[in-house]
Amino acid sequence: MGMMFYWLAVESSVAELSESAEAHGFGINTDIFEANLINLAIVISVVVYFGKGFLGKILSERRAAIEADIKESEARKQAAIEAQKAEEQKLAQAEAEAERILAQAQASASSVTEQILAQAVAEIQRLEESASQDTSSSQERAIAELRQRVVELSLKKVEQELQSQLANNEDAQRQLIDRSIALLGGPS
């Protein structure tokens, strides 16, 4: 229906206006009323006036909000950087502390090691000494024992020999006595 009316209206207006001779080709229309210029100027100024106020307010608010947001986030960033710095400092401190403790521990460990080593060496020496002492004394003892035994055995053997040779031999006894007397420097 609407379209029908529209086409009818178009037809009628076309019929009405078609007889008006119009200039063909592109051109500038200088008729202010036909171009609706005054009304458009008013409308545009109204739009600009109110729109500027309205839109300007919205835009400046938006800008202010963004500015505040950026400022806030920058402040947060700054705070975060500072916190990071502080933490890094703490970390460095802790690392230094750890290093110090480590060095200390190493030093004490090495000193303890040395001490223990020295002790061990001393102990070994002492043990060696006592061992060698032991061995030498037991050797001497063994040697002394052997000597004594050898002496004893040889004495016993000599006694036996003597007895066996002298006891049943008057001649030998006499000879021996003579020789002994001669040895003593008597008249031979």
Binding site: A23, F26, N36, L40
Partner: peptide, 8 residues
């Protein structure tokens, strides 16, 4: 808004 009719 634009005065198109200025252009024929």
């Amino acid at each position: 808004l634009v005065p198109w009719k200025l252009l024929r």
